[in-house]
């Protein structure tokens, strides 16, 4: 199990800034797509150095509700 850390700031007008951490390569893209589909439209995207490392498989699963 790997722990990912996301820091989300919702501004007073609703604009959202998301920092996605803990990924190697482009695995963060799927997570950011999840947030974009939920919230609205991406206005700006910046990659940090980890983005250019080798890719890892990332899949978002729905949580089982009991």
């Amino acid at each position: 199990m790997k722990a990912r850390e996301y820091e989300i700031t919702i501004g007073p007008t609703g604009e959202v800034e998301i920092h996605v951490e803990g990924f190697q390569g482009k695995g963060c893209v799927e997570v950011l797509r999840f947030f974009e589909q939920m919230i609205g439209k991406t206005q700006e995207l910046r990659h940090t150095s980890g983005y250019y490392e080798p890719d890892e498989d990332v899949t978002l699963h729905n949580k089982q509700q009991h």
Partner: peptide, 12 residues
């Protein structure tokens, strides 16, 4: 850290 995104909200 891998990426930073700024998302404009659309409320439906």
């Amino acid at each position: 850290m891998s990426a930073v995104a700024i998302i404009a909200p659309i409320v439906v």
